Simulated scan of single mutants.
Amino acid sequence: MPDHRSYQDPFYGWTIPKAVSLCVQTLKECSSLPFPAIQKFIALSESQILNEQSSTTALDHLTKCTKKYDIAFEKLLIIYNGFVTILRLALKPPAAFLKPDIFKDDLRDLKFSEEIIEEFHNILFGSKRDQLYLTAQESDRPRLSLLKSFDWNLDVTLTTASLSRCVEPLLFFKFQTTGNRTLTFEVPIKKFNELRYNTALLLKEMEEIDGKQTLKLLET
């Protein structure tokens, strides 16, 4: 039977992320760190993905472990960061793309212990599987700024003795987005009316197309 790597990339890609390789290396250096502490790091990583805790909670636990096991805080932080990175990478593709056996093989290639592999397996394929994927996909989704406020004003300049002709009225628009960005522009009345007409025409054509598709579905 062919090895799965002949037709599927590892969940972390073809290049091992630096955060993951440093995590593996640091785990070897911190051999005195007992597995229950590592298990807690992995559980905190899951809570971090699910937004069930603040970053302060994880840092407090790392500080306690530093004092208890006499291990540098920086090393524990590298381990924790590596665990979070693994979960984020595993949750990037759709849930159906990540198979339990293949995931375990990928972690073995990274030289993680069987105990750690089993912990990650239980998280990614356990009762919170769907919740983890939905939360991760939502947090990684590109976001555009939303409209926070909208103002407009009509500027009309009347004919005076100093003007040879009447100036065309202008519409001034001002948008403020949730990213605290302010956008302003002006449009002549004539152009604004053209925009209104074309928008209404487009909406009408969309309704007609939607109606035709509905009839086709009913016919079938």
Rank of each mutant, 00 (worst) to 15 (best):
C23Y: 03
T66W: 03
P169E: 11
D130R: 14
E208P: 00
K67G: 15
S149M: 04
F103Q: 08
K216M: 15
T178W: 04
R129N: 09
C23K: 03
E74S: 10
Q213V: 02
L147A: 07
Q48Y: 12
V84P: 03
K212F: 05
K174S: 01
I86L: 10
Y12K: 05
T182F: 01
E194N: 13
I16C: 02
P93E: 06
D3S: 13
K128W: 06
D151T: 12
E168T: 12
C166D: 04
S149L: 03
P94M: 04
C65V: 11
R143E: 12
R88W: 06
D3T: 08
F11G: 02
K92E: 14
Y197H: 11
L170P: 07
R181I: 04
L170H: 06
S164Q: 07
T178M: 00
Q131N: 11
R181T: 03
L218S: 07
S162F: 06
S127Y: 09
N51C: 11
D101G: 11
Q131V: 13
C166K: 15
L203F: 07
E138V: 10
C30Q: 07
T135Q: 14
Q137K: 14
T26A: 01
E207D: 11
A19Y: 05
L170S: 07
K28P: 01
L146W: 07
S54Y: 10
K67L: 14
F192I: 00
S55Y: 12
A200W: 02
L77T: 06
Q39R: 15
P36Q: 00
K191Q: 08
V84H: 10
Q25L: 13
V187N: 02
S162D: 12
Q48D: 13
T214D: 07
N81H: 07
